[in-house]
């Protein structure tokens, strides 16, 4: 199977996924009791005004027509207009999505940077104190609700110690770097504004840790079990019999192979991080998609909610495609006979 084949297959697959996702969200949106037109018009508006708004928004059209119109728009890159902000949904997402993506990527990197060494240590020193410690950390990580952990961290590091900011992406008295990528870490570096960069890093640490903590546990456990499995293999014994040092056996023989099953877990984590960001962002007043979508749901702003779903699903499919391609790169057996 070649890379191109996989990509082609996945893109075809993507069409069906997006179709399904939009259909389901659209149906659910319309099953929810509540009338966006009534909400916009306010309590005291007359039935006439409500009807007019409904007409303006196209909500009086039959459902299939509304859906058809929407899907044609999506295919052309038009996610509709937000009922709440009255701006194109795509424009809104362009502002909020990078903030969420930045948070999710940093959270993932934290989970990887801490989870892999913990998992390796745990496997190498199986049943030793460090292994028990890692397993305890993993279980705590997996079972701690992010919003609760976030609050604890804010109380302690912001409230008591005052070493990290309590929320937002950047200090309010620091000017935002010029918008280039939407990622403040990158934008501030492009602008060579190191005060801003420092502030951005400081603001990222607590929410990224909160969001990444769950996955740290997942990654550590996955790497641990994969490492234990690899270290049992015959080729490890061959390496030992050939005088390869224990360090090299762990890091150059076993770990790369143990990472193969772990890649799947990491791919799933990316999707979880994007959805999971909603709660974390709310706790940390992070101006990302989470906050945007929560406000949109409250305002029954269906185009915005659906736009969010479409973008996240798209990201999810893309990450899975990337996972498959990485698989092929690291495992010659999947690539097939060369």
């Amino acid at each position: 199977m070649s890379f191109l084949n996989v990509i082609r297959k996945r893109l075809v697959f993507l069409v069906f996924v997006m179709f399904g996702v939009t259909l389901i969200t659209f149906t659910i949106s319309n099953l929810i009791p509540g009338d966006p037109a009534r909400l916009i018009a306010g309590d005291r508006a007359t039935a006439e005004i409500v009807e007019k708004i409904r007409n303006d928004l196209g909500l009086d059209r039959p459902l299939y027509e509304q859906y058809g119109k929407y899907i044609v728009g999506v295919a052309q890159g038009d996610l509709g207009t937000s009922i709440r902000t009255r701006r194109p949904v795509l424009e809104d997402l362009k502002i909020f999505f990078p903030a969420t993506l930045e948070l999710a990527i940093v959270a993932l990197m934290l989970a990887i940077a801490m989870g892999i060494p913990l998992g390796v240590a745990s496997a190498v020193w199986k049943n030793k104190p460090i292994d028990h410690l890692v397993r305890i950390i993993s279980v705590i990580g997996i079972s701690t609700p992010a919003f609760w952990l976030g609050l604890l961290l804010i109380v302690f590091f912001y409230g008591k110690l005052g070493i990290f900011p309590g929320g937002g992406r950047i200090d309010q008295n620091i000017a935002m770097p010029q918008h280039v990528t939407g990622f403040l870490l990158i934008d501030s570096l492009i602008a060579r504004d190191f005060t801003a960069f420092k502030s951005v890093v400081g603001h990222l640490i607590l929410p990224a840790f909160t969001l990444g903590f769950v996955h740290l546990g997942v990654v550590a456990r996955q790497v641990r079990s994969a490492m234990l499995e690899e270290l049992k293999q015959d080729y490890i014994r061959t390496a030992r019999a050939n005088g390869v040092s224990e360090f090299s056996i762990v890091f150059t023989e076993a770990l790369p192979n143990a990472m193969i099953p772990s890649i799947t877990v990491l791919g799933l984590a990316v999707g979880d991080l994007l959805y999971g960001a909603v709660l974390t962002e709310t706790v940390f007043a992070w101006p990302g998609m989470g906050a945007y979508v929560v406000s949109s749901i409250q305002a029954l702003d269906f185009p915005a909610v659906m736009g969010f779903t479409v973008v996240v699903s798209l990201a999810y499919v893309m990450v899975n495609l990337a996972v498959d391609l990485i698989y092929m790169m690291v495992d010659p057996r999947i690539r097939g006979i060369s």
């Binding site: 015959d234 080729y235 019999a241 050939n242 005088g243 192979n257 010659p332």
Partner: peptide, 24 residues
């Protein structure tokens, strides 16, 4: 010291050639 002996002064081969090499 053991590692400098193994694979150098003394080598070992095993029963299962199927799994004795790193698959990747």
């Amino acid at each position: 010291e053991m590692n400098s002996l193994r694979g150098n002064q003394v080598a070992m081969i095993f029963q299962e050639p199927q799994t004795a090499l790193n698959p990747t």
